[in-house]
Each structure stands twice: as structure tokens, then as C-alpha cells.
Simulated assay, not measured.
Amino acid sequence: MSAAHFYPIGIPGVPWGDAERTAWRERQVVSRRYQDDVVTRVEALADRFEVVRYGQLTYGDDVYPLLALKSRSWDPARPVALVTGGVHGYETSGVLGALRFAEEHAEAFSDRVNVIVVPCVSPWAYERVCRWNYHAVDPNRNFGASREAAESSALIELLAPYAGRFLLHIDLHETTDTDVTEFRLAKASRDGQPLAPESVPDGFYLVGDSETTRLDFQEAIIRAVEQVTHIAPPDADGRIIGAPLSARGVIEFPVRNSGLCACVTRAPFTTTTEVYPDSPRTNPEECVEAQVTAVRAALDFALAHRS
């Protein structure tokens, strides 16, 4: 490895092979437990929801059940709303926000919509507070033509029976300082690419799917969330993560081209949330509440404007 390389694994300009992916995996340290933080809370809701085990991941000696919560009062005549979290396991408020929504708010919508909550799509990464899965693959790039991530494929299979019935999908994410200090470096090294500078937006914003969603839907969520936490301003070029703003705190692009989770249902109302818990202007609890507020606002709008 060159002494000038920006990441401790790999050779500049050369994509990783199996040895580098193994070396990366060996750097990941378990710092929390999916069983304690997620499985226990999901199972505690078994009297109020149907707990669906939609798959299992076996990575080395670790085995992870993949769990979803489904409305007990399921009515085939109603549309379906999907809430996902933990597609990137390190994005904690997405996992905790999905769980809190299920625990405290989902039943209030059960007479109008069938709800599916998948709080932690990527449990191996959740435990290690990292973005990728065991194979150094990003699940949130594998909901389109690519099918490299077992986490993504399992979710696609879970949702397949409800194709054409989805009203809403909101995918809960967050951005942390490690996006710049770790992930961007690791990704560039893994792909044999030069390191491109990137900054972290300071605040909450949304990524809409320009092919399927309405801007007024995104704006309604922003109005609700700004009562809880601050909205990310654009950078000096008027952009957020390189994309032009469609509205305050909103960027849009065809997410299916990137294989993002938000494209998986083709619902008429879809969005991806992003909060920034490392901002000095917020805290982790506020970020969880912002996620819950976003889900509730999304459901309220979608139900009020369903065709």
C-alpha cells in the first residue's frame, strides 16, 4: 500500500479483491446488539402486530433473523404503507424512529391503511455501526437491477405479494460525520477511484424520487419536521450532496437508477429522510423524533391525497 493512500486498505487505483474485503471486515467491531435493541422490541409488539420473519442472514458465526411488523387489522381493500429503517445499519435514528413509530403511532392509522414496518434491514451493519454488509456491499444500491446484497433481496421478496398496492414508502436514513471520515474514503478505495471531497449537510433533508413522487408531498414533510429539528441549507453552490434543490430541504432524482431502497415499491408517495445527529444544533433524541414526525406527516398527506 502506498504511504500516501487515503485509506489503510487497498492500493490506489485498484479495486478491492477478496483479500481487501476480508481485511475491511476484520476492522469492523461489534459495539451493540441487534437482538437486544431491535428483536426484543419487535417481539414485544406481537400482541399488537403480526411479527413476520421474512428471512435470515448467516454471516460467519452470526445469525440474524430479518423481522417486519405488519398490521394485525390487515384489510385487503386498503392500500399499503411501508416504513423502512436501517438499510444502512449505522444510521441509528432510522432504526429507532421506525421502532418508535410502530410502538406509539402506527395503530392510529390502522383503520385507513395497512402498515408494514421493517425497522432494521441490515442487522450485521447495525451491530458494527457501519454502512455496508458483511461483503462490503451497500444494500442501498441493490434495489434496482443489481442484486448483490442479501438484505435487499430479502426485503424485495417480502414486499412482492403487495406489488401495485403501495400508497406510501418512507425510508429513514441519517448522515453522520463518518460519511466523510470513513465511508467516502473506504468506498473510493474499494472501487479504485480517487477521493472526491464532499461535505455533510447540516440538518434534515429529503431525497424524493423524481419519477414517482410529488413535490407538495415532500414540502408537507419538511413543514412538519422543521417544528422538531432544523432543515439543512444548501451549500455555496445551492446544492445538497451535489443535487440542486427542488424546494427547501428537498432534492429529487430518479432513485431507481441508483438502486435505492425508496424505489422498491413504486408507490405514488415515496421519500428518503436524512438527519444529521452530529450537528451541534441537534441531538440523537431529536433526530429520532424528527424521523417519527416525518413518517406521520407522510402518512397524513398520502391518505389525504390518495386518488
Rank of each mutant, 00 (worst) to 15 (best):
R256G: 12
A81K: 11
D216Q: 12
T265W: 01
L303D: 10
A81M: 03
W24A: 15
W16S: 12
E219K: 14
A81E: 09
P201F: 01
A188E: 13
T293P: 09
P284E: 02
A77W: 04
G60H: 07
A23E: 15
R112I: 07
G249D: 05
L67Q: 08
V118M: 01
W24P: 06
A262T: 10
H135M: 09
D37S: 03
L195E: 11
C120W: 11
P15N: 07
P119E: 09
V87G: 12
A145C: 05
A125G: 10
D278I: 03
N283R: 07
V118T: 05
R48C: 02
P277W: 00
A154H: 06
A150Y: 04
S93W: 03
L168M: 02
P119M: 09
L172D: 13
S210I: 04
E182H: 13
P119C: 06
N140D: 14
C263Y: 07
I231V: 14
A154Q: 03
Q28G: 02
A145W: 14
E157A: 15
I231L: 02
L303M: 10
G94C: 11
D36S: 04
P244V: 00
I241W: 03
G89A: 03
L96R: 09
S246D: 15
L172R: 11
D300I: 08
N142C: 03
F301G: 10
L66A: 05
Y34W: 07
D237E: 09
Q193A: 03
F166C: 04
E226T: 12
A236P: 06
H230L: 10
A102E: 10
E219A: 14
G85Q: 05
V228P: 12
L206M: 03
Y34P: 00
D36F: 00
V39T: 14
T271D: 14
F183H: 08
I11Y: 07
A102Y: 05
S73H: 14
S258Y: 13
V180P: 13
R72P: 00
K70L: 13
E107R: 12
D177P: 04
Q193P: 12
G238H: 10
K70C: 08
P119W: 05
C287D: 11
V113D: 13
G60K: 12
R306Y: 01
L299G: 13
R112G: 06
W16M: 02
S152V: 02
A77C: 06
F101C: 02
A4Y: 04
R147N: 11
E226H: 02
T271P: 02
G86S: 09
T273I: 08
A3F: 03
D177I: 04
L195T: 04
V207A: 01
F217K: 13
N283Y: 00
Y90R: 14
G10S: 01
P12L: 05
R281M: 14
D235E: 03
V95P: 08
V118A: 09
Y59H: 14
Y64K: 01
V228W: 06
V30D: 08
F204W: 12
Y59T: 09
E107T: 04
R25T: 05
A298I: 05
E252T: 15
A220M: 08
D47Q: 13
E127Q: 12
L299Y: 06
F204P: 07
E43H: 13
D191C: 06
K187D: 11
P280N: 02
V228A: 10
P280F: 00
K187G: 04
A46D: 15
A108H: 15
